[in-house]
Simulated assay, not measured.
Amino acid sequence: MPTEGIYGNVEGLAQFTRALSRAGAGGMREEVKQANFDVADKLTAAAKSKAAGLSRQQRSAAESLRATKTQNYSAIRMGSARKPYALGAEFGAKRRTRKGNVARGFRPWRGNQFDGWDGGPGYFLHPSIREKGPQLIQEYMDKIDRLMSEAFPE
């Protein structure tokens, strides 16, 4: 399961959930869906916790984090009509004011193009993914392995 950034792809997961349907294991499909959601939910909680120690803007933006789920993947959504600044709070800003300060109260840019900064992107969500991701991926794969052995015993 290669991971790149915040995207992890479990090769064969879609085929596995289809096989569960054909085998009449609808309850197992729900367990896979829940396992997907659990990863996103735990990352959301970790990011909110990390943001608690940051600026008021970042804490507020982190409140808009929410985990979502479908049969084959889970996602973390950020921002809303009331918090359109959420991505700026996570990644900062490049633009500077006339006085040289970063625009609109955002922290310095930590996005996808670094200017000498080597800590990785983001202030709260992406650092949480880097910190918690490997452990959560292992937990997820253990659960998928268990479900596969229950659904298709040898």
Rank of each mutant, 00 (worst) to 15 (best):
A52P: 03
Q57T: 13
D41W: 15
Q34G: 09
A25P: 08
T44Y: 14
Q15E: 15
L65R: 05
K48M: 08
S21R: 00
K50N: 03
R56I: 11
G5L: 02
M28I: 15
G8V: 14
Q58H: 06
A52D: 07
S60D: 10
R18C: 04
A61H: 05
E31W: 08
E30T: 07
R56K: 14
G53T: 04
L43M: 06
F37S: 06
S55C: 00
S55E: 07
A40H: 14
S60N: 11
E31F: 11
E11C: 00
K42S: 15
E30R: 15
R59D: 06
A25F: 02
V39R: 02
N9K: 06
E4D: 06
E63S: 12
L54F: 02
G8T: 12
V32S: 01
R29D: 05
G12K: 08
R18M: 12
R56H: 04
G24N: 04
T3L: 07
E63Y: 06
V10K: 00
A51R: 09
E4K: 15
G26M: 14
L65N: 08
R22D: 01
N36V: 08
Q15D: 09
A45H: 11
G8A: 00
A46L: 12
G53E: 03
R56W: 07
S55M: 03
E31A: 13
K33G: 10
A25T: 07
R22C: 00
L20M: 02
D38F: 09
L20N: 00
T17K: 02
K48Y: 03
G26S: 13
A35N: 14
G12N: 09
A35Y: 08
I6F: 00
F37E: 14
G53M: 01
Y7G: 02
I6E: 02
A46I: 11
R18G: 05
G26T: 14
Y7C: 03
L20H: 00
Y7I: 08
A19Q: 05
L65H: 04
L54A: 04
G53H: 02
D38S: 15
L65V: 11
E63M: 11
G53Y: 01
A52W: 03
A46Y: 10
R18W: 15
T3P: 03
E30S: 08
R59L: 07
T3A: 15
T3W: 10
G27P: 14
T17V: 13
T3D: 05
R56S: 11
G27V: 12
A45G: 01
N36D: 06
L20V: 01
A40D: 15
P2K: 15
E63L: 13
Q57M: 15
F37M: 08
G26F: 07
R59S: 13
F16T: 08
A52V: 04
D38Y: 02
G8Q: 03
V10E: 03
A14F: 04
F37T: 10
S49E: 14
V32D: 00
K33F: 04
L13G: 00
Q57N: 09
L13N: 01
A19Y: 01
A52N: 07
I6R: 11
E30Q: 11
E4A: 07
G26N: 10
Q57P: 04
G5E: 01
N36I: 09
A47I: 05
A47P: 05
A25N: 10
G26C: 09
A47W: 06
P2I: 12
A23L: 01
A40Q: 13
